[in-house]
Simulated assay, not measured.
Amino acid sequence: MKDLTFRQIQDYLLEHYQQSRTEEGLFIKLVEEVGEVAEVLNGRSGRKEGVQDSNEELAKELADIIHYTVAIAAINDIDLTKTIFDKDKKAAIKYQHERDLEGFLNGKES
């Protein structure tokens, strides 16, 4: 299995959704998938019965959340990689983390 970048999946999803979906439609699907993750987690905690409780099911629902999140970014021409690095850098400063994501990836402290 190949590694995947946000840019690659954004390009793929833009091609897939640019003519057929609106951001509102994608957002509704995202909310639906968040609800499905909640069901799995509620099943695990015993708050809900009859729910398939497996890491495989949880993984599928989390992948769906990523799919629709990235699709919304793609059709709005948002560079998620840049945004994640920028947001993490600010959070690392705000919360006084020893290193930010960029430092982690470089294997050193920021």
Rank of each mutant, 00 (worst) to 15 (best):
2 K>Y: 10
2 K>L: 10
5 T>Q: 01
5 T>K: 05
5 T>G: 05
6 F>R: 06
6 F>Y: 15
6 F>H: 12
7 R>G: 03
8 Q>H: 04
8 Q>P: 01
9 I>L: 15
9 I>Q: 13
10 Q>V: 09
12 Y>W: 09
13 L>E: 02
17 Y>E: 13
18 Q>F: 04
18 Q>T: 04
20 S>P: 02
22 T>E: 02
22 T>C: 04
23 E>G: 12
23 E>T: 12
24 E>D: 12
25 G>D: 11
25 G>E: 14
25 G>K: 10
26 L>N: 03
27 F>C: 11
27 F>T: 14
28 I>F: 09
28 I>G: 02
30 L>W: 12
30 L>P: 03
31 V>G: 00
31 V>P: 00
31 V>I: 14
32 E>C: 01
32 E>I: 00
33 E>L: 04
34 V>T: 07
34 V>W: 07
35 G>R: 01
39 E>Y: 13
40 V>W: 10
40 V>Q: 08
40 V>F: 08
41 L>I: 14
43 G>V: 06
43 G>I: 07
46 G>I: 00
47 R>N: 15
48 K>G: 01
48 K>H: 04
49 E>P: 00
51 V>T: 02
51 V>K: 01
53 D>L: 08
53 D>T: 15
54 S>I: 03
55 N>R: 10
55 N>V: 07
59 A>R: 09
61 E>T: 10
62 L>H: 03
63 A>R: 02
63 A>H: 01
64 D>M: 07
64 D>F: 04
65 I>F: 00
67 H>T: 14
69 T>E: 00
69 T>M: 00
69 T>L: 11
70 V>H: 05
71 A>P: 02
72 I>P: 01
73 A>E: 02
73 A>L: 01
73 A>K: 00
73 A>S: 09
74 A>F: 01
75 I>Y: 07
75 I>L: 14
75 I>Q: 05
75 I>G: 03
76 N>E: 12
76 N>L: 12
77 D>K: 13
79 D>L: 05
79 D>V: 09
79 D>R: 09
80 L>R: 02
81 T>M: 05
81 T>R: 11
82 K>Y: 13
83 T>H: 12
83 T>F: 11
83 T>W: 09
83 T>L: 15
84 I>N: 07
86 D>G: 01
86 D>R: 06
86 D>S: 10
87 K>T: 13
89 K>F: 12
89 K>T: 10
90 K>C: 04
92 A>W: 11
92 A>K: 04
92 A>V: 09
93 I>Q: 14
94 K>N: 05
95 Y>R: 14
95 Y>F: 14
96 Q>L: 09
96 Q>D: 13
97 H>W: 15
99 R>V: 05
100 D>G: 11
100 D>F: 00
100 D>Q: 00
103 G>M: 04
104 F>L: 15
104 F>N: 11
104 F>H: 13
104 F>C: 07
105 L>V: 04
106 N>Q: 15
106 N>D: 11
107 G>A: 10
107 G>R: 07
107 G>W: 08
107 G>C: 08
108 K>V: 15
108 K>I: 09
108 K>M: 12
108 K>Y: 05
108 K>L: 08
109 E>F: 09
110 S>M: 07
110 S>C: 07
